[in-house]
């Protein structure tokens, strides 16, 4: 099946089995390996991407669902070589240990901050409740998201 969609702002066309999982399209076919696969059953959040600005799990989507969609992965959130405020905050707050959950955590946090620009600590924990970090670095991740939210407000960044 021929499928056309926007991936990180670029028009993208693929010709794959319509039921091929989006995680496989991204990682295997398009070699965008930033998005990770953990459980493959929707329970770990490592494969979180944005589809039309909402968080989705790439392991529970099939290629046909991409038709006409605007997809953003971890590779697509920096601007002109400058890290996204959330990426910067994760680095600065030591919110990355092994790094495997990080792309999903960042994408889930983008969804959270787009709905709720000033989340409380509890709301941040709820916002990333679908993402598992097996290094258990949750405290630093929550601090990073809070810092990014505060910085965003200060700098007036989108």
């Amino acid at each position: 099946m021929k499928i056309g969609f926007t991936l990180n702002g670029k028009n993208t066309f693929i010709d794959v089995d319509a039921a091929r999982r989006v995680i496989d399209v991204l990682r295997e076919d398009l070699e965008m390996t930033g998005t990770k696969e953990g459980c493959g059953t929707g329970e770990c959040g490592a494969c979180t991407i944005l589809v039309n600005s909402e968080s989705r799990l790439a392991c529970l989507m099939v290629a046909a669902q991409l038709e006409g969609a605007e997809v953003t992965t971890i590779e697509g959130i920096e601007r002109d070589g400058r890290l996204h405020p959330l990426q910067k905050a994760f680095v600065e707050h030591g919110a990355i240990q092994c790094g495997f959950c990080t792309p999903g955590m960042v994408m889930a946090s983008i969804d959270l901050l787009s709905r709720n620009p000033e989340p409380t600590q509890a709301e941040i924990r709820e916002g990333i409740s679908g993402n598992l970090c097996r290094c258990t670095g949750y405290q630093k991740i929550v601090e990073a998201v809070a810092a990014a939210a505060a910085a965003k407000e200060k700098d007036g960044l989108p």
């Binding site: 929707g42 959040g45 968080s55 989705r56 529970l60 989507m61 959270l112 709820e126 409740s129 679908g130």
Partner: peptide
């Protein structure tokens, strides 16, 4: 129910 991305889907 589920998690934010599950509720989005």
């Amino acid at each position: 129910l589920g998690s934010p991305p599950i509720r989005n889907m």
